[in-house]
Each structure stands twice: as structure tokens, then as C-alpha cells.
């Protein structure tokens, strides 16, 4: 009964569209919560980005473009370019490392997969505070990896490896890697195992089968993972402060700095809006792209 079984639920559902049923009332509290406490803040932030900033003070309602004009400030522009490059590099490295890792893990037994997933989730949920702190220790002179290098005879005496852009990179790699894995984990776990097996029967070794069959088949997944990891990396705000110098600050740090320490809320709001637009267009763009490749 293919015709009926597919049309029954949709027909039943479409009939309840728009009708104000008493059961629909339970949507009101969640609706209020999201509209008031989430949509409103964003709308207000959008408005504030056009407000006039009173020198040495707060801001007042107005419609000025000066906050956006401030983007042409070289400080902002270098931070922007730096953020985008950093995140692009992180994204590419993360996804390239995560692809084979996820593929290999997804083929392991559950008892092995679960601890690995828990480790990934821990990193992902711990936020940058604990992780940043851990990296400052790991890269420090007294407790860090340089001690191992000394022990191995590579270095003469332990050195501190931070603040440096290398430190930011490695911490962000560590932070974004679990996100990359969990983004590509669902499609990879659903991936048809008979494809690499078929490749194996035609003489491809596992490594070649991975690069010639798995990677091309998951092209769409890889592209969306690249974008998602890029956006995720743009959100990092503590690593650049804890592990870098002011010259290494990214856009996220700049926004915090302007909002909290320089009290220039309208400029921070303008940068925020700009950052949102970048992320939105990237994510929507990749969504369109994947839809196109599906259809």
C-alpha cells in the first residue's frame, strides 16, 4: 500500500496546519522564551549596531553608519584577515585528520567507539577555559612537552612554547577536532560498507580504497564539515587571549574587548552582525550546495 501509507500521515498532518487547536497552546511558553530571550537580543543588537556612541559613555538611539565604517580601520582588517586565515587552516587540517580517524573508529567495536566518543564529547563540552588552562601547562617551561624534547636530546633546556601563534593553532586544532569528527560521524557510520569491499575485490588496498572510494563518495559531507568547522573555529575567543599576544587576537576577541573593556557596544555590535552574516551565508550556502548535489 505504498500510495496510502505515504499519503496518510502527510494528509493527517496538513489538515492541522494553522488550526488553532487547544493542544497547540503548549507551544506558547517555548515560543515566548525563544522569541523574547533569543530573537529579541539579536534584533536589538542589530539596532544597536546603528546607534551613536557617546564618547566616554554609553550609546544613544540613532542611525549612523560610523560603526560599520570603522571596519576600514587597519586593526580590524588585520584581525579579520587573521581570523579567516587561521580558521581556514584549522578547518582544513581538522577535517583532513578527522576523515580517516572517523572512518577507522566507525569500523571499530562499540566498546572501543564509546570511550573515544566520550573523550571527544568531553573536549567539546569543556569549553575553552579548562582546555586553554591545560594547554598553558602543556606548553609551559616547567611542565610542558619541551621537557620531553630535552629528555630526548632535541633541546638543551626546557622552553615555554607560548605565547605564540603556534600555541593558538595547536589548542584550536585540539578543540575543533572533536567537532569535526562528530560532524562527519553520522554520514560515515551510514556509509555503505560494501563499496570499499567492492573496491577491495578489484584489488585496492584499504588505504587506496579509502582515498579512491570513501573520500569521493563523501565529498558533500567533507565540504559541509569544512564550513561547519570553520564557523566553529571563528567562535574561539579565549585561546587567542590565553595562548597568544594581542597581535594574535581574532575577531571574537576583538568583539569582547570592544564590548567589555572599551565600552564601545555599537562597534562590537556591528562586528557581531558582520560575523553573523559571514557565518549565516556560509552555512546557508553549503546547505544549498548539498541540496543541489542530492537532487
Amino acid at each position: 500500500m505504498t500510495v496510502q501509507s505515504t499519503s496518510v500521515p502527510t494528509a493527517a498532518k496538513s489538515s492541522s496546519f494553522g488550526r488553532l487547536d487547544s493542544k497547540n497552546l503548549i507551544l506558547i511558553p517555548p515560543g515566548i522564551m525563544l522569541l523574547v530571550f533569543f530573537l529579541c537580543p539579536f534584533l536589538i543588537m542589530g539596532a544597536v549596531s546603528f546607534y551613536y556612541r557617546v564618547p566616554d559613555g554609553f550609546y544613544e538611539p540613532d542611525f549612523v553608519l560610523s560603526n560599520y565604517a570603522a571596519f576600514f580601520d587597519p586593526v580590524f582588517l588585520t584581525a579579520l584577515v587573521r581570523s579567516l586565515t587561521l580558521c581556514a587552516v584549522i578547518s582544513v587540517v581538522c577535517v583532513s585528520l578527522a576523515m580517516p580517524f572517523t572512518y577507522l573508529v566507525s569500523r571499530m567495536r562499540r566498546v572501543v567507539q564509546i570511550p573515544i566518543v566520550i573523550l571527544l564529547l568531553c573536549i567539546l563540552t569543556l569549553s575553552e577555559v579548562i582546555l586553554g588552562f591545560s594547554w598553558t601547562i602543556l606548553l609551559s617551561r616547567t611542565a610542558g612537552v619541551s621537557n620531553i624534547l630535552v629528555w630526548l636530546g632535541v633541546l638543551d633546556r626546557p622552553v615555554s612554547l607560548y605565547p605564540s601563534s603556534f600555541a593558538i593553532m595547536i589548542a584550536m586544532l585540539h578543540f575543533c577536532f572533536p567537532f569535526a569528527v562528530l560532524t562527519i560521524y553520522p554520514p560515515i557510520s551510514r556509509f555503505d560498507r560494501s563499496l570499499p569491499e567492492a573496491a577491495a575485490t578489484m584489488g585496492a588496498g584499504p588505504v587506496r580504497a579509502f582515498f579512491t572510494v570513501v573520500v569521493p563518495a563523501l565529498r558533500g559531507t567533507i565540504i559541509s564539515a569544512l564550513v561547519l568547522v570553520f564557523v566553529f573555529a571563528l567562535g574561539a575567543y579565549l585561546f587567542p587571549q590565553m595562548l597568544g599576544r594581542p597581535a594574535d587576537w581574532t575577531l571574537s576577541v576583538l568583539i569582547t574587548d570592544q564590548a567589555i573593556y572599551k565600552s564601545n557596544i555599537p562597534f562590537a555590535a556591528a562586528m557581531s552582525v558582520f560575523l553573523c552574516l559571514i557565518c549565516f551565508s556560509l552555512i546557508l550556502g553549503v546547505g544549498k550546495l548539498s541540496k543541489k548535489s542530492e537532487g
Partner: peptide, 24 residues
């Protein structure tokens, strides 16, 4: 619609949400 709205926070850098909340 609410579901779509609720997915937005994770599509954006947390700093932007944080600033929105601060202003709000």
C-alpha cells in the same frame, strides 16, 4: 519555525549571542 530559530545559536560564534544577551 521555532525549531529553526532554536538551531541558530549553534550556527553562530558564541560571542555574537553573548553580545546580544549583554545588550538585551
Amino acid at each position: 519555525a521555532l525549531f529553526g530559530l532554536g538551531l541558530v545559536p549553534f550556527m553562530l560564534p558564541p560571542v555574537t549571542s553573548a553580545l546580544g544577551f549583554l545588550i538585551f
